[in-house]
Nucleic acid binder design. Structure first.
Lengths: 143, 143
DNA sequence: CCTCTTACTTATCATTTGATAAGTAAATCA
DNA sequence: TGATTTACTTATCAAATGATAAGTAAGAGG
């Protein structure tokens, strides 16, 4: 298989990943937040504590827009801002108690759909899947 | 590895896929169309000919919004609408000549970045990647 | 101390996207 | 033939998102 054929396979694959991700995550988020706010909470969940600049960089959002969405999340009592004691310009963002509850529920609902999706997979299938995830993460979707 | 651990691996994996997809595709689309319009063109490119209803279903867009975006793409001369001769309510959407040129350019730019990403992969690595893509597509990201 | 840079905020505006109501025209069905 | 359904359109509105200008306050460097 030449590299261009592999590229087409990748295109088809990423489409599948996006479609299945959509299927697993649809309706998982609370209606009280927007899609972008959910993605920010998701990022904070796996990376906390995190600064607004990091959110801005990693999510490809401008600082003003990041700041606005963080303010909204803060007003909804889903995150907490903690000042850096050494550099008082910096902040660290963490999930609040309510935010943790919300994200736990969201992840639980996504996990349930995932388990449903792999319910007919054999032990060998699961091992294949795990190996394949590792290979692609290190050799193709790295960084 | 239990299924919950596998789920966390999946979460991390899909984040990587989304990030790399963003990296590969950023700036690939022309500035004269919006993100949604680009996604529609991408779908048409790989599935043409396709009906507005199919686009609406597969892209999770309402028919009115699908219709609006297709009208805009048509006004930009990037797609063509062909009436079904048997059922005159139906349409088939195809890329126009200009649309094909635009998508060829976009795909070429994405492919160039992809090739860059795998430039250091050995023949064995590429085979591993191909196998892994196949396994995940059939066992996890199916349908 | 003064200047520059960094980290973040506020304000504002345009554009995109999503949702809904209402309509047309052709096919199907009874 | 008349009623219903399907495929798509038009119009309109609200909300989300993106982009930019201008501002504050703290740290860093000379």
């Amino acid at each position: 298989m030449d590299k261009t054929a592999l590229f087409y396979k990748l295109v088809s694959f990423t489409n599948s990943v996006h479609r299945v991700t959509y299927e697993l995550t649809q309706d998982a988020k609370s209606d009280s937040i927007t899609q972008v706010q959910y993605k920010i909470l998701e990022y904070i969940t796996v990376s906390q504590p995190v600064t607004p600049s990091e959110i801005s960089n990693c999510m490809n959002m401008s600082m003003p827009n990041t700041s606005r969405e963080l303010r909204k999340l803060s007003e909804k009592r889903l995150i907490e801002k903690i000042e850096d004691t050494e550099d008082r310009r910096k902040q660290y963002i963490c999930l609040s108690y309510d935010g943790k509850i919300m994200m736990n529920e969201a992840f639980a609902s996504i996990e349930a759909r995932f388990l449903d999706r792999i319910q007919h997979a054999s032990k060998e299938d699961l091992e294949d899947i795990e190996r394949a995830l590792d290979i692609l993460q290190t050799k193709l979707f790295y960084q």
